[in-house]
Design a protein around this nucleic acid. Sequence first.
DNA 1: TCAAGATCTGTACATTAGTACATAAATGGA
DNA 2: TCCATTTATGTACTAATGTACAGATCTTGA
Lengths: 192, 192
Amino acid sequence: MSSNTKRGPNDPDRADRITAAALEIIAAEGIHRASHRTIAARAGVPLGSLTYYFADLRELHEAAFRLLAERLSARYRTALETAPTRDAAANVVVGLIVGDEYVDATEMHALFQMYASGNHDEGVRRLCRQWLEESRASLGLHFSPSTCRALDALVEGWPIHRVFEGGHLDRTVVDQAVRAIIAGLEDKEEQR
Amino acid sequence: MSSNTKRGPNDPDRADRITAAALEIIAAEGIHRASHRTIAARAGVPLGSLTYYFADLRELHEAAFRLLAERLSARYRTALETAPTRDAAANVVVGLIVGDEYVDATEMHALFQMYASGNHDEGVRRLCRQWLEESRASLGLHFSPSTCRALDALVEGWPIHRVFEGGHLDRTVVDQAVRAIIAGLEDKEEQR
DNA sequence: TCAAGATCTGTACATTAGTACATAAATGGA
DNA sequence: TCCATTTATGTACTAATGTACAGATCTTGA
């Protein structure tokens, strides 16, 4: 890219600010509102700036989803790396499910947009796969592959209820479910 | 609606065919491709027909999502009503998760589009809530409220992996997870 | 059979969108 | 300082979209 050029961009993190603005709009108003013009306005940059940094709108949306996936993956990874024991890790998983600490409602919305876009956009589909893989890999720091699968399903699915039914989840129930899965599957795993 | 008119529509199920066409396009190509014109072409009806039956595009999309939600709800309900025992119901739940029998990949795509639209469209949001409630109600034919919550999270979350990682799920693992949750939560429930 | 009124359709229009690209600004070496 | 080159911007253009609505078509009662 810049291997045969002598100069860097005049405003180096402009691309990043555009990407961040795109994600904000996608999360708040949906991808159908995230046009060149709305994104440019939000980022406070001229229209031409977007076509300069991104070949087309798809690429820009994809960059926004990549930013989202990287943020969430990093957060999951950190949270689970920090847990010293399997029991602590179980508590982290419960937290991932019930609370806004890790993924707030806005980010959850953006995540739905990402899954929806993954249906027809190959690039976004790759991102979805990566995101799922990495979140399972983080769980893998503490649990067996099978347990990871099951816990991750819970982690993906339960927040859907949280978002649409508005209310807070019953932490006790979530806790029981998480521990039931860990108990049920880790034991089975060890028997093999 | 037709209370003060003397005649019915000339083509009574045209509205339904339009709705079905809309859902097909949403599922196959995404909601951003589901314009008046593409839907009309798919349904084999003139453009004006859509604006005649539906006040605006939102209403049409909403009708499509309603159709989807009703179909899936009915399928879940039937499957779980048919199960004679709790054990059979557990098998049904496993089937809901692993297989295409209840919700195929295409419908799953449409479901993502629905969740994504629910973020910003109040009408669709209501549909999402209803869909989640009804699917839990169907589980409620066999399980306690807490168990329903947990199982439904699994039912919503696990297919996400199925769709994006393409492969078939390991039925054994799903079976273990489902039964672990039932065992863990139903027992707890009864102790109260 | 025939009008009256409901049901339906094709076209036209304003708006918005993505994107190309000519032009401007900034940069750094000579 | 000044020019060559990269970086950045504003505008203009084509395509597509939602929607209104005038007119056409069909149905029914008399």
